[in-house]
Structures are given as C-alpha cells and as structure tokens.
Amino acid sequence: MISINVEKRLKAYSGQQWLKISHEFADGSITKIYGPSGAGKTTFLKIIAGLITPEKGIITVDGNAWLDTSSKQNLLPQKRMVGFVFQNYALFPNMTVQQHLEYASNDAQWIRRLLKVGKLETLTTHKPEHLSGGQQQRLAILRAIAIKPKLLLMDEPFSALDQKMKSALIKELKLLFAELKMTVLIVTHNPQELHGIADSELMIDSEE
C-alpha cells in the first residue's frame, strides 16, 4: 500500500498554485492519473520518485516512510528504486539500446526478454538518435522496468506509439506488471487513452 499526502507549491502563469494530493494506491493496482495541463501531474510523479521535494507531506510505502517533511526525512531516489518513464524519455545519448538496459540490470536473460517485449531485438546497437520516436519511447519503458521496480511511474508513456503498437505493448506490459506484482501509476492527458487498462483513476488539479 502506498499512502501519499503532499502539498507542493507550483509556479503558474496565473501566479502561485498549490498541488494538494491525498491518496492511497493499492499494491498491484494500475492507476490512471489525468488532469489539465500544468496541474502538476509530472510534479506528482517526481515527488513520489524523490526527484522533487514538496513543501509539506508524507509518503509511506508498505509502512516505511519515504518522505516525512515534519521530521525532515527524505529517502534518496536511489534508495526508492522506482521505475520512471520520463515524458521526454531521458535516454542517454552515449548509450546503445543494449547498454541502456545493461546500465539498469545485470540479468542478461531478463534484458533479452525485455528487448523482445519492446520489439527492439534488432536495434540493440543503435543509439537513441538513430531510433524513431516510438522506439525511443519503448526503450524508455523497458529501461524503467529493467530494475524490476515494485512501483512504476509512467509519464505519458504511449504518446508516440501508433494504435497497433500501443495495444500490443500494453498487452505484454500487463503480463509483466502482474508477474512482478508492480503498482503502476500512468499519467495521461487523454482520459480515454487507457480505457480497459487501469483499474483505478486519480484526477489531479491544482488550486490557488
């Protein structure tokens, strides 16, 4: 169980806004997170991953405190080991597809399986600049899953994929999520996009 209660000040065109979220995510659940642009969806994911610190809040995972601003407790992102798919993919320009996965995992068999899931087996020696947008996005997803995280945070993870590729990938990913008993949070700007995948949803909107 992941329990989150955070408050973070956001900078917006209309002045300062507050992102206030109090929510619990069940283990193994897949949650769709949606809301208007600039509402703080990406910020919310980064707070969970430990990449952004909120002004106030508590995050507990299976009873362990990851963040407690009142006692100035803040677990490093490296210790949280959360899989994170960045909206801009954040691929490393100096690494090939294979090297990306090897950077995340030492398990050669697991890497081979991931490459098959992402249909990137023939592109292992390619660097990101030589991959299409869809291939880059798939690599970003595979890299995040490569560490076998208990919690996977995905920021607009299917935006560059065509419908056919998206359906096939989601089908494979759902099997992996279930196998690894992963809790998954998926941010999307289109609430219809993840119909039938997510078993719960969370609407995010900031307030003044």
């Binding site: 992102p77 959360v82 899989g83 960045f86 954040a90 691929l91 490393f92 950077y103």
Partner: peptide, 29 residues
C-alpha cells in the same frame, strides 16, 4: 544537459558519482 538525464540515472539506483562518470561526462565529450 537536460536534468532528466541525471534523474533517470538516479531512479535506476545509480549514485551521483556513477551518474557523473557514465552518463554526464560522456555526453559533454
């Protein structure tokens, strides 16, 4: 360099030192 490069490395469990040597430094060659 985009901040997300280092952030991605941290989420993979890599230390600041390893991130600097294996991700940041090679990308400013």
């Amino acid at each position: 360099l985009p901040a997300s490069l280092a952030q991605a490395s941290y989420t993979l469990g890599k230390s600041e030192r390893e991130t600097f040597l294996r991700v940041l430094l090679p990308n400013i060659k």
